[in-house]
Design a protein around this nucleic acid. Structure first.
Lengths: 125, 125
DNA sequence: AGTGTATTTTAGCGTTTGCTTAAATAAGAA
DNA sequence: TTCTTATTTAAGCAAACGCTAAAATACACT
C-alpha cells in the first residue's frame, strides 16, 4: 500500500489534490460501474446480454443451446448477472426465464446497440 | 463442451437458429467489446481512465500519487490498457505520459461522462 | 565514470474466475 | 409414488488476476 514514490521537483501538488478530490467524488459511481463492466467484460456473459436484448426473455435451456455450452456453466453466469442486478428471473413451471432488468440498462443498451457495436470496429473518421 | 442438454418438446428450433446466426454475425465485435469492458471492469483501471479523460495526459508517477498505489502495480495496469489499445504512451525524457487513445474512446467516453455516470445510480424514472 | 530518478520487468504468492462433474431441488407427467 | 425434465448448487481444479518485492532498464545530471 505504498504510494508517492517519485520525488519530482515539479510535482504539481495542486493538480494532484484536485484529481484526488474529483476521484473521491466519483468513487461510488465508478465502483458500481466497474462491477457492471466486469460482468459484461466476459465474452459469454456479453453474448447472453446481447441475446437478451434481442429476444426479451430466454430460459437457461435456450441460452445453453444457442451458446453451445454446459447448462451448469450457463446457470452460474446467469447467477452472477442476477446478483449484479443486470438481469431478473421469472419462473414458469419448471423453466426459468431471464430478462434484462431496467437497473443498468442505460449503461448496457448503448454498448450492445447495432449502431454502437458496428461503429466499434470502424476506424476513426 | 457439451450442449443442448434439454429435450424440450416445444424447443423453438427456428428461433434458436436465428439467434445463433445473429450471434455469429456479431461475434467479432462482441469479442473486442468484451476485451475492452474487461479492462474497464477493474476498479483501479476504470479510475485511471476516468482521470485520463479529465486530465488529457498523466505520467505513471502522478497516477500512483492520485490512486495512492505502488508504482509497479500502476505500471502493470497501464501495460494492460496499452496492450488493449485503450491508451497510448509518449515518452518525454525519463517520464512516460499516458493518454487515452482514440481507438475505443467512443465506447469509454459515454460511460465516464458526467451525465452518464450520474445517471447511472439514479433509479428508473 | 558514478549517482539519482522514472519506469518496466520478473518472480512469487494468495485470490478469484470459469469450467466440469456430480449431487441436490423443483416441478410436471405417468 | 416413480420417472422424467429444468435448474441450481457444491466440490474440485487449472488458469488468470492483482499485488508485493526485487532486479533490470532508461535517461538526466555532475
Amino acid at each position: 500500500m505504498s504510494s508517492s514514490s517519485c520525488i519530482r521537483v515539479f510535482a504539481d501538488t495542486a493538480h494532484i489534490e484536485q484529481s484526488r478530490h474529483r476521484l473521491a467524488a466519483a468513487e461510488p459511481e465508478l465502483q458500481s460501474l466497474a462491477a457492471v463492466l466486469a460482468l459484461a467484460g466476459n465474452e459469454v456473459r456479453l453474448k447472453m446480454l446481447f441475446l437478451l436484448l434481442d429476444k426479451q426473455q430466454l430460459c437457461v435451456c435456450d441460452l445453453a443451446d444457442v451458446l453451445q455450452m454446459n447448462v451448469s456453466a450457463i446457470s452460474q453466469h446467469l447467477r452472477k448477472l442476477k446478483d449484479g442486478g443486470v438481469i431478473q428471473a421469472r419462473k414458469v413451471g419448471q423453466t426459468v426465464f431471464y430478462s434484462l432488468s431496467a437497473a443498468h440498462l442505460s449503461v448496457l443498451q448503448p454498448l450492445l446497440t447495432p449502431a454502437s457495436t458496428s461503429a466499434f470496429l470502424t476506424p476513426a473518421r
